[in-house]
Amino acid sequence: MAMNGTITTWFKDKGFGFIKDENGDNRYFHVIKVANPDLIKKDAAVTFEPTTNNKGLSAYAVKVVPL
């Protein structure tokens, strides 16, 4: 089920960042999981599918909501 969130941290040079989800949890995401990576920036609103990996909470099918 899709969730909403906000990008809180973005490491462009490393290709990953973190999203604060609607429950207040931080989720890892990688640029290859983003549909529109050219719009990635700190504080951008996103929708995504929540999941977990071996390191904890993460996100896939991430879409940055255009302003």
Results as ranks from 00 to 15, higher is better:
M1V: 13
M1G: 13
M1P: 12
M1F: 10
A2K: 14
A2V: 15
A2P: 14
A2M: 13
A2S: 13
A2I: 14
A2T: 15
A2L: 14
M3H: 06
M3V: 06
N4K: 14
N4R: 14
N4Y: 11
N4V: 11
N4A: 09
N4I: 09
N4C: 13
G5K: 01
G5E: 00
G5R: 00
G5F: 02
G5L: 03
G5I: 02
G5W: 02
G5N: 01
G5A: 03
G5M: 02
G5H: 01
G5V: 02
T6K: 11
T6H: 11
T6V: 14
T6Q: 08
T6M: 09
I7N: 01
I7C: 03
I7K: 00
T8E: 10
T8M: 10
T8W: 08
T8Y: 08
T8N: 07
T9C: 14
T9A: 15
T9I: 14
T9F: 14
W10S: 01
W10A: 02
F11R: 05
F11L: 07
F11M: 06
F11N: 07
K12G: 09
K12S: 11
K12N: 08
K12C: 10
K12V: 09
K12I: 08
D13P: 05
D13E: 11
D13C: 11
D13Y: 10
K14T: 05
K14E: 07
K14I: 06
K14M: 09
K14F: 11
K14W: 11
K14Q: 09
G15Q: 08
G15I: 02
G15C: 08
F16R: 02
F16D: 02
F16V: 04
F16T: 03
F16H: 04
G17K: 02
G17N: 00
G17I: 03
G17Q: 00
F18E: 02
F18H: 03
F18R: 03
F18Q: 03
F18D: 00
F18N: 04
I19Y: 02
I19K: 00
I19H: 00
I19S: 00
I19F: 03
K20W: 08
K20M: 12
K20G: 04
D21E: 01
D21A: 04
D21Q: 02
D21C: 03
E22W: 07
E22A: 09
E22R: 06
E22G: 05
E22S: 09
N23Q: 08
N23C: 12
N23A: 08
N23D: 05
N23I: 06
G24H: 05
G24V: 01
G24T: 03
G24E: 04
G24L: 04
G24K: 04
D25Q: 09
D25V: 07
D25I: 06
D25H: 09
D25E: 10
N26Q: 12
N26I: 15
N26V: 14
N26A: 09
R27F: 07
R27D: 00
Y28D: 00
Y28W: 11
Y28N: 04
Y28V: 05
Y28P: 01
Y28E: 03
F29R: 00
F29I: 03
F29Q: 00
F29H: 00
F29C: 02
F29W: 02
F29G: 00
F29S: 00
H30K: 06
H30N: 12
H30T: 12
H30A: 08
H30P: 06
V31G: 05
V31T: 07
I32G: 15
I32D: 15
I32P: 05
K33Q: 15
K33S: 15
K33N: 15
K33F: 15
K33W: 15
V34E: 03
V34I: 05
V34K: 02
V34C: 11
V34T: 06
A35R: 10
A35D: 11
A35M: 15
A35E: 13
N36C: 08
N36I: 04
N36F: 06
N36P: 02
N36M: 05
N36V: 04
P37E: 04
P37Q: 05
P37Y: 05
D38H: 13
D38Q: 12
D38F: 08
L39K: 11
L39R: 09
L39D: 10
L39Y: 10
L39E: 10
I40V: 09
I40K: 00
I40T: 03
I40A: 04
I40W: 04
I40L: 13
I40H: 01
K42H: 08
K42R: 11
K42I: 15
K42M: 10
K42A: 07
K42T: 08
K42W: 06
D43M: 11
D43V: 03
A44H: 04
A44N: 05
A44I: 06
A44P: 00
A44F: 05
A44W: 04
A44D: 03
A45T: 11
A45C: 13
A45W: 12
A45I: 10
A45V: 11
A45K: 13
A45H: 14
V46D: 01
V46M: 01
V46G: 01
T47P: 01
T47E: 08
T47Q: 09
T47W: 07
T47G: 02
T47M: 09
T47I: 13
T47V: 12
F48D: 01
F48K: 00
E49P: 01
E49W: 15
E49G: 06
E49S: 14
E49Y: 15
P50C: 05
P50A: 07
P50D: 02
P50F: 03
P50Y: 03
T51L: 11
T51I: 14
T51E: 12
T51A: 14
T51Q: 11
T52H: 11
T52S: 13
T52M: 12
T52P: 05
T52I: 09
N53S: 13
N53P: 04
N53G: 13
N53D: 09
N53M: 08
N53A: 08
N54D: 12
N54G: 12
N54H: 14
N54M: 11
N54K: 14
K55C: 13
K55H: 14
K55D: 07
K55W: 15
K55E: 07
K55G: 09
G56H: 07
G56F: 09
G56S: 06
L57A: 05
L57T: 03
L57Y: 06
S58G: 11
S58F: 08
S58A: 14
S58W: 06
A59V: 08
A59C: 13
A59E: 02
A59Y: 03
A59M: 04
Y60H: 15
Y60Q: 15
Y60W: 10
Y60T: 15
Y60S: 15
A61L: 10
A61K: 12
A61H: 13
V62A: 01
V62S: 01
V62F: 02
V62E: 01
V62L: 04
K63P: 01
K63F: 12
K63A: 08
V64G: 02
V64L: 05
V64N: 01
V64S: 02
V65I: 13
V65C: 11
V65P: 02
V65H: 11
P66D: 13
P66I: 13
P66L: 12
P66R: 10
P66E: 14
P66H: 11
L67W: 12
L67Y: 13
L67D: 13
L67K: 12
L67R: 13
L67S: 13
L67M: 13
L67H: 13
